[in-house]
Design a protein around this nucleic acid. Structure first.
Lengths: 216, 216
DNA sequence: GAGCATACCTACTCGTGCGTAAGGTTACGC
DNA sequence: GCGTAACCTTACGCACGAGTAGGTATGCTC
């Protein structure tokens, strides 16, 4: 059965770097739709318009491939945010630009978001990878809050700050999910809403206007 | 090899209802540690102290078993919350009790939380199941906000309310994750922190003190 | 235009784990 | 005391998918 009847000779022989990107594109797409375990290397290869051994030759095993996806998409996202929020700007401007960049990215790359936060979360081998990215975000947000507070001559405990930052990051992720599930929604508007919750809410709160549990 | 040498005759024959609970306990444990796909029916059966066909006889296929876990844990959680937050109380009291019950539950049932929110999230077949639970929570929170607002004679757009509720639920989930990863942390204190973010922040915000994007 | 490296393929092996068939054992009703 | 139904087992079939062996074509260099 090696008859090799002139099947469409539409083989474009492409340089390695290009094929790798195509494979990563396909992998992100399939992983985001199926999840890590349910995704099959065959489907990824087929979607990339290539055969399976090529994937193994270029990107390695399934886990390595997933990590490669995580890295590429994560780096892209972080760059989009960091590029927008220059550190010399005032805190609220910085926060606003960061949020806008973030929601813009999620709106434009829903697959990336799905891979990064919906898939990598549950799978044990990658949870660490994600947690560190998240931790960095929390640090940045906590830093902003602290900075803004000091500018007003006030101060807050470190744990309080961290926990509030954690909550804000969680709220942001949640809205990102909402955005990813509502294709007609406007990223800009979502960013504005989040900015409201973060800036007005947290600001007021850290300024000392706190709620105390009833003492029965 | 049917020699049946008196292997420990420690077989306790138990009624169906009891065994089912044991199986569900084991399933929740294994699913939460390994994730849905990586969990094996053999391990679940072994952990439950029973053999595999029994699991199939009582709870059905792997997917059905997972759904059963989801239902039991989800119902437990919802009941814990609903039982604490009686609808005739004032809104802030209700919110406070609900949050306290929620974080108390997560602190006491880390496995349940892991199954509900870390595992079921990514897996396609169950995303809907979860989304509906979440949607109900968002409804409730949005209702509370609306109620509190009207009590002050103000009003807000429906979408705004929903989105803010969504953000608050996300922040709460995020803190729940934090709590689940910090066994020494105090659920009560975490609830207080979340209450602060939710009540002071959202209240102030909905009262009209909103942030507006710069118009360049 | 010979040689060599790189791109690419088809067609397999093999482990893992879901789901089941067929049969043994204990408790309870009569 | 004995049948019968519910409980429980061992041992297997079978599909699916990760990873590989070994071979073919194409372009680039001298």
């Amino acid at each position: 059965m090696l008859a090799r009847v002139s099947t469409t000779p539409s083989f474009k022989r492409l340089p390695r770097a290009v094929r790798e990107q195509q494979m990563l594109d396909a992998a992100v797409k399939v992983f985001s739709r199926r999840g890590f375990h349910a995704a099959s290397m065959d489907e990824i290869a087929e979607d990339a318009g290539i055969s399976k051994p090529m994937v193994y030759a270029y990107l390695g095993t399934k886990e390595e491939l997933f990590v490669a996806c995580l890295h590429r998409e994560g780096t892209r996202m972080m760059q989009a945010i960091a590029g927008a929020a220059a550190p010399e700007l005032p805190a609220d401007e910085r926060l606003w630009r960061g949020l806008r960049a973030f929601f813009g990215f999620v709106g434009a790359h829903r697959d990336s978001w799905a891979v990064l936060y919906r898939q990598a979360r549950g799978e044990q081998p990658f949870a660490g990878e994600l947690a560190s990215m998240r931790a960095r975000l929390v640090e940045v947000v906590a830093g902003m809050l602290d900075h803004a507070l000091r500018a007003e001559g006030r101060e807050a405990g470190e744990t309080d700050l961290d926990v509030i930052a954690y909550a804000l990051v969680g709220a942001t992720e949640s809205l990102a999910d909402w955005l990813a599930d509502h294709p007609q929604a406007d990223p800009e508007k979502t960013a504005t809403r989040m900015m409201n919750v973060a800036w007005v809410g947290a600001g007021q709160l850290l300024r000392g206007d706190s709620w105390r549990p009833p003492t029965p």
